[in-house]
Amino acid sequence: MGEVIVVTSGKGGVGKTTSTANLGTGLAKLNKKVVLIDTDIGLRNLDVVMGLENRIVYNLVDVIEGNCKLKQALIRDKRYETLFLLPAAQTKDKTSVTPDQMKKLTQQLAEEFDYVLLDCPAGIEQGFKNAIAGADRALVVTTPEVSAVRDADRIIGLLEANEIKKTQLIVNRLRAEMIKRGDMMSADDVLDILAVELIGQVPDDEHIVVATNNGEPLVGDNSLAGQAYMNICRRITGEQVPFLDLEAKKGLFGWLKKK
């Protein structure tokens, strides 16, 4: 039986979809069987971040309504044999699916896949309730900003109330330079405020923009963000991995320059 993991945040634009795409791809790199579900019905985006937008025939709502078989709606990734995407419908709304239906679907998928990753929409309404319905674990994505951390706190409370057993935090878009001069909260500062376990700190990295432009998640490459996401994947599988030094980017040259 696989694990069902929801990637959520409350606030929009903090990197849920990017994180889902990278974590899914990274887990597939680790030879896991992975299916990604875009639950943002009406505003689907995981397909473009994965670069699979041209291959969509059926979607989540088609599966729920029985217009197609589950297998027919799963799109195989371009690069990884064991990675699949179940895209959201673009022309329906969030009420086309109920939490009970999502629970059934994720259970069915967990029988065949090692990991079922759900990309949750922003907000705390129906779409959020659908996405968390069948989840064993939640990854809450936040950025080191007052608004995002506040929403993350609200989401953590709601996840607790819905009896999600395990909630872990990803702090995204960290900028080492700003943290150093006291103009940005560090991951530790955010942890001080939110009482959850940290599973990843991802630097604000231009490579992410390039990867999204190309529709190819960068997880596992040499960029700092790519390494950070790969580390999160390994932590998801239960491995103990130390946290990255986000300043390492500068290398010897930067180190010399600093002296």
Binding site: P144, E145, V146, V149, R150, D153, R154, G157, I179, R181, G182, D183, M184, M185, S186, D189, D192, I193
Partner: peptide
């Protein structure tokens, strides 16, 4: 106080009433 200190203080207060 740095701006990150200010952010932390503000968050702590707003979360108390949110919670």
């Amino acid at each position: 106080k740095t701006s990150s200190d200010i952010a932390k203080d503000r968050l702590k207060l707003v979360l108390v009433s949110d919670r």
